[in-house]
């Protein structure tokens, strides 16, 4: 039933791999890493390779989601609009193969891009602690793949390019620009006050379900120094609150529950990968082409 996922993925990778736009994005990623390094290296004295790694997290959390969303948002709907999906589905691959083959193919593009950027960082700064570098790289790949999943899921769910783009942009806006308004805003409406340093537990769980927070929290624990999430802030939370992890803000006695631990960020990333793909898969199975 799923025998053709690999074939579709390889074709998709070689097809997407010939797209200039994608390589521009990859190049952008690599250039940002290089420029970031050079800038830090030349302005700050006595900076260790491990610290530099931490600085990388800030541009990556902004650029990588955008790049991954652009790589993925046309994956399935693009073929539907052009009609090449009919050529593809006329052959043995079925719709399952298409969705997961596309997911794999586009994932490969993002993995290649992140891997190139990280290899470059290793070349530029041979002195980085290798284990940290590897863990940070793997985490960043997972972060990128999560956004590929969101984009491919959206692209499988809709029937027009415009809707796919609107949804993808909408998701990104919610995660970057509206998150505090939605979470802390709800808290405000419920309790007549913004979330305090030690708010209700449900709020901490909800708040950390942002994949960008999940990434920065996890990254902070992997590399030296803290990586703060890039977010629009509305002042509904105190400045101190922005600097604390969910576990540190837990109000109850004893250890924070598992879903506020740092490793739970991995679950958050996987949820953001799996749920959109599942919705896209479900809708694409039932679509009229």
């Amino acid at each position: 039933m799923t025998a053709h996922i690999g074939t579709v993925a390889r074709k998709d990778f070689s097809d997407a791999g010939r797209s200039k736009l994608l390589w521009v994005l990859v190049g952008l990623l690599v250039v940002i890493v290089a420029v970031g390094y050079v800038a830090i290296w030349s302005t700050i004295d006595d900076v260790s390779g491990a610290e530099v790694l931490g600085f990388l997290g800030f541009p990556l959390q902004v650029v990588l989601p955008v790049a991954a969303l652009i790589v993925g948002y046309m994956a399935v709907v693009g073929e539907r609009r052009s009609g090449s999906i009919k050529l593809l589905l006329g052959l043995p691959p079925n719709r399952t193969d298409v969705v997961f083959g596309k997911l794999l193919g586009r994932t490969a593009v993002v993995v290649v891009a992140v891997a190139l950027a990280f290899v470059l960082s290793l070349v530029l700064f041979g002195s980085v602690p290798f284990v940290d570098w590897l863990a940070f790289g793997a985490l960043t790949i997972l972060f990128g793949v999560t956004f590929v999943g969101i984009a491919v899921g959206v692209s499988a769910s809709v029937s027009s390019r415009g809707r796919s783009m609107a949804l993808v942009v909408g998701v990104y806006m919610v995660l970057v620009a509206l998150w505090e308004l939605l979470t802390a805003g709800s808290y405000y409406l419920l309790y007549d006050e913004g979330p305090p340093l030690e708010p209700e537990t449900w709020y901490l769980l909800l708040d950390q379900f942002n994949p960008i927070f999940a990434y920065t929290n996890l990254a902070s624990s992997v590399v030296e120094g803290d990586i703060f999430p890039f977010q629009f802030q509305y002042g509904l939370e105190s400045i101190e609150a922005y600097q604390l992890t969910p576990a540190e803000r837990y109000a109850g006695s004893g250890d924070a529950p598992f879903f506020l631990q740092e490793w739970f960020g991995l679950v958050v990333l996987v949820v953001w990968l799996v749920v959109p793909v599942a919705i896209g898969y479900y809708r694409f199975q039932r679509a009229e082409l």
Partner: peptide
Amino acid sequence: DADEISPRVGVLPEGFDCYPRL
């Protein structure tokens, strides 16, 4: 049984497009 059919038939669809980069 769509998965049984596609290996046995050849399809020239209407309103299709090829992969422009391949």
